[in-house]
């Protein structure tokens, strides 16, 4: 029986292992100086990491990357939660509401970027509307939402795509709570706050946490939005990695790999710690209950 199991599993496992763990190993190896295809082999060396640490702009890139990711993920969580609550209140009577909001989930990020350019560029529709209302006189009076390091253009794209994602995830999780558990808690004399804190939150937490982590990881690793709508040097880490990779000097590619390996390691550690914490919280909850 067991051999048959592994026979059915092996094709997909082979693809996954080769192409995720394999590529990760490859990336780590290259960042440590193993790149015979470019005629470079200093393995093992930390010089490509040291080069990154020596450049102050790389730290700024890291800061920018985290700033866009954290702000966008947090705002998407709050807005997605509100939208999910609204959808829950509205219920199943208005089917069309449950259609419309999923549209952004279905289209490429580049569509969201195009929409943001049309609306929020300095010659965009919002700027023209402000002019028509007499608020501004010239295009450059309009706040520079795009192509600046404040990154509101980038964050708007993320929000347009991810508020629906968060709302869908949270809505489904909230739907999945059996009504009986709340009723039981009420019968046992739990207050509204206690029911929320000890009945609802523990049940929705794992689902919400995974949605948050997926959004955060995506936002850290995203390329298109910061590349097109960002403020230029210093770039976010994925854009920096791409610039290093497309540099005519092949040695730079290894620094690019070092950037990506650092990012990947940060994300994996974040997700690992988060899931450990959530598991511990669950256990603690069970013990204290």
């Amino acid at each position: 029986m067991s051999r048959q199991h592994w026979l059915s599993l092996s094709p997909v496992l082979l693809v996954m292992l080769l192409m995720t763990l394999g590529t990760l190993l490859f990336a780590v190896g290259q960042s440590l100086g193993y790149a015979p295809q470019y005629g470079i082999n200093h393995f093992p060396t930390l010089r490509y990491y040291e080069l990154l640490v020596a450049q102050p702009s790389v730290a700024m890139s890291l800061g920018l990357t985290l700033y866009y990711a954290v702000v966008a993920t947090f705002l998407a969580l709050v807005m997605g939660f509100l939208l999910a609550m609204a959808l829950l209140r509205v219920g199943r009577h208005h089917q069309w509401l449950h259609y419309v909001y999923k549209f952004p989930l279905m289209v490429p990020y580049l569509v969201g970027i195009a929409l943001v350019i049309v609306l929020f560029g300095q010659g965009g529709l919002m700027a023209r509307l402000s002019y028509a209302l007499g608020w501004i006189d010239r295009p450059d009076d309009f706040a520079a939402l795009l192509y600046s390091h404040y990154g509101w253009g980038i964050i708007l794209v993320y929000l347009w795509k991810q508020v629906p994602f968060m709302a869908l995830s949270i809505y489904v999780v909230l739907l999945g709570i059996p009504e009986q558990t709340q009723d039981a808690a009420r019968l046992l004399g739990a207050s509204r706050w206690q029911r929320w804190r000890y009945v609802v939150v523990p049940q929705v937490m794992p689902g919400i946490l995974s949605a948050v982590l997926i959004c955060f990881a995506f936002n850290v690793g995203a390329f298109e939005a910061p590349f097109i709508l960002g403020g230029g040097f210093p770039d976010t880490l994925p854009v920096l990695a791409w610039r290093l990779f497309t540099d005519p000097d092949y040695g730079q590619r290894l620094s690019g790999m070092a950037v990506l390996v650092t990012m990947g390691a940060m994300l994996l550690v974040t997700v690992w710690v988060a899931s450990l914490l959530s598991r511990r919280a669950n256990r603690w909850q069970r013990i204290s209950a």
Binding site: L24, A27, G221, P238, A241, W242, M257, M263, G264, L267
Partner: peptide, 10 residues
Amino acid sequence: IVPEMALALA
């Protein structure tokens, strides 16, 4: 979780 850029470049 792994950045798309890391996968794509590798």
